[in-house]
């Protein structure tokens, strides 16, 4: 079920850099974990509605109004080492052939 191609594809989707050794370990560990989980396949679930959230009751809606985050921009930018002149510095994305859409 889990082979090098699956691990490569999933790691790509998850944007996780795995070393060759770690890719190997991941194959063994994920395979082992999923074998334990295969028991779910034996459960009869025909017509059972999936339960994504345990509570059906409505939550607490926020008021329909614009809220201003109380902290100034500088405070938020101070949380990263990569701020310059009021902007967050990131790598260029245009012309990057490796970037995924």
């Amino acid at each position: 079920m889990i082979d090098p191609d699956v691990v490569r594809r999933v790691a790509g989707l998850a944007r996780l850099g795995l070393s060759p050794e770690e890719s190997e370990t991941t194959i063994t560990q994920l395979q082992g974990i999923l074998e334990h989980f295969e028991v779910l396949g034996e459960v009869e679930t025909e017509g059972v509605e999936p339960l994504a959230h345990a509570v059906d009751e409505p939550g607490t809606p926020g008021a329909d109004e614009i809220l201003v985050f109380p902290e100034p921009q500088d405070t938020l930018l101070s949380l990263t080492e990569h701020a310059r002149e009021g902007f967050l510095v990131v790598q260029r994305i245009l012309g990057d052939s490796d970037a995924e859409g």
């Binding site: 944007r15 990131v90 994305i93 490796d98």
Partner: peptide
Amino acid sequence: DGMRYGPRHEGDTLLDTYRATRG
């Protein structure tokens, strides 16, 4: 992903940076 919080591990491309930081 290293953009808005905490440290960042730089790679050659943006995607490499994501992978390196998270990996």
